[in-house]
């Protein structure tokens, strides 16, 4: 046993060192967040509550019922019913059973029209299952709720067109998808083609094109 060991044995050096560290930590700033009062910063692209982007032009959702999301969803929790009205396929029902969703965000990425989004809202516990079973109206409502609290005037989900991925294979609407306005756009009595030019920050000009492609 060396002298060092003996000194250590009698004076509990290593324990004192540990206690010195804990004492030092006591004097540093606390890292804990007092949750309901304080909230942590959410990073862009957070995968939270589902929503349907409300199209500024039509005031409705942009989904075209291509079934891509429903076919691919790993949790199989998207249910779509389509009907034929005047020779056109219309999405009759679009339901997301959020309780079964695993929040992978794949649906946001495959959607060719960028209709779907996982918003940054994460506090939506409920007492009944029905409240977390999102149908079309609820999904649009989710978007309104989210948009009204979103700090910026425009929102772009990074999974609509992820960085660093070759866009040449994407469909046109996806390629050209720009940020969507989060503030309600005053609906003109009759849509004038010149009107969009008067509101440069909203950039609805890009959105007009996105609607054209199927």
């Amino acid at each position: 046993m060396t002298l060092k060991d003996i000194v250590n044995r009698f004076f509990l050096i290593e324990i004192l060192k540990g206690m010195a560290l804990t004492f030092k930590m006591m004097c540093t700033r606390a890292v804990t967040i007092q949750y309901p009062k304080q909230r942590r910063k959410i990073f862009p692209g957070f995968r939270g509550k589902h929503a349907f982007v409300r199209d500024a032009k039509t005031g409705k959702e942009k989904c075209i019922g291509c079934m891509k999301c429903a076919n691919m969803c790993p949790a199989q929790c998207i249910y779509i019913t389509k009907t034929k009205i005047e020779n056109k396929m219309v999405v009759e029902k679009y339901d997301i059973e959020a309780l079964r969703c695993i929040y992978c965000g794949y649906c946001v990425e495959v959607c060719p029209t960028c209709a779907l989004v996982l918003t940054e809202a994460y506090e939506y516990s409920a007492y009944t299952k029905d409240e977390i079973y999102f149908n079309k109206a609820k999904l649009l409502q989710n978007w309104d709720d989210f948009a009204s609290t979103y700090p910026a005037d425009e929102y772009f989900n990074k999974f609509w067109r992820p960085d660093g991925i070759d866009t040449s294979k994407m469909v046109k609407a996806k390629k050209e998808q720009g940020p969507v306005p989060t503030r309600p756009v005053p609906q003109p009595a009759e849509p004038q083609p010149e009107t969009p030019a008067e509101k440069p920050p909203e950039k609805p000009a890009e959105k007009t094109e996105t609607k054209e492609t199927e």
Binding site: I42, F43, G45, F46, R47, I102, Y103, C104, G105, Y106, L118, K158, F159
Partner: peptide, 12 residues
């Protein structure tokens, strides 16, 4: 993780 992919635990 969250900064990159939007999730903290089940990242995919």
């Amino acid at each position: 993780y969250e900064m990159t992919c939007g999730a903290r635990l089940t990242v995919s």
